[in-house]
């Protein structure tokens, strides 16, 4: 298993990927939008889903790419390993339940904010969107504020 890259080097690479997305696609990266795109196709239509019903397949193809890219990188670095990553004191079952619950909360938050760490925070942050910076501050503030309550899960 190879060690992870230097975070600044990885961040620079990620910034260049984002920049390429701005330049060649005219938009940033995304993740939650792909989930909303699929949800819009199984749910009855309403003003929230309409936006994603009308959206093109760009986001879904991009997320398929993320999965391929993640797989390739993990395979090349010898990090491809089935398992459940969790804190030292939690059972597999607790971890899976909390992963699902945390995912659901992020889904609700992303639906309200119209984006997640990729599309809103990263992409919008680089384009100096006011809403993106509000989202970044709110998310990290709550994450740090409530971290002591989740200590059992991670420490």
């Amino acid at each position: 298993m190879k060690p992870y890259s230097n975070p600044y080097a990885a961040g620079t690479a990620l910034g260049l990927v984002l920049l390429a997305s701005f330049a060649f696609a005219g938009r940033g990266l995304g993740a939650s939008g792909a989930f909303a795109w699929v949800a819009a196709r199984v749910a009855p239509t309403n003003p929230y889903f309409e936006r994603y019903l009308a959206a093109d397949t760009w986001l879904v193809v991009e997320i398929a790419g993320v999965i391929i890219g993640g797989f390739l990188s993990a395979a090349l670095a010898g990090r491809l390993r089935p398992g459940i990553d969790r804190g030292p004191r939690v059972t597999v079952k607790t971890r899976l339940v909390s992963a699902f619950a945390g995912g659901a909360a992020m889904g609700i938050g992303a639906a309200l904010a119209r984006g997640c760490t990729s599309g809103l925070a990263l992409s919008g942050g680089a384009l100096l969107s006011v809403g993106s910076w509000v989202f970044i501050c709110a998310a990290f503030a709550i994450g740090f504020a409530f971290a002591p309550l989740m200590r059992w899960a991670w420490r």
Binding site: A31, A101, A105, A113, R114, C116, V134, G143
Partner: peptide
């Protein structure tokens, strides 16, 4: 509001939407 709920979810899940796809892809 969405950022606050998202932040709590991020803390509980330990992954964000994009990184959850990468975690899943690596098994």
């Amino acid at each position: 509001a969405g950022g606050a709920i998202f932040g709590a979810g991020f803390l509980i899940a330990g992954l964000c939407p994009g990184t959850s796809c990468v975690a899943a892809a690596s098994g």
